[in-house]
């Protein structure tokens, strides 16, 4: 299934967000996620079923002013 991860097209075999994130290399750490512009809390990542073309955003702490 093709999805877009942080603006880059990627292929994933897992269709649950939590598992897809692991497949994409996000095993742990301080990250937050959104799918198609909607915030998905960590506790709901196991409930979110991805669809072809979904846009996933994964963000983490960064310098800021």
């Amino acid at each position: 299934m093709k999805i877009t991860l942080n603006g880059v097209e990627r292929e994933v075999s897992e269709n649950l967000l939590d598992q897809a994130l692991r497949e994409l290399g996000y095993c742990d750490g301080a990250i937050a996620t959104a799918v198609n512009g909607e915030f998905i809390p960590k506790t709901q990542r196991l409930d979110i079923v991805l669809s072809e073309g979904d846009r996933i955003e994964v963000v983490a702490p960064m310098q800021g002013g």
Binding site: N6, Y26, V59, M62, Q63
Partner: peptide, 11 residues
Amino acid sequence: VTVSLRRESSN
């Protein structure tokens, strides 16, 4: 201190 969020590369 102020901080922000930005896209995280899995690599």
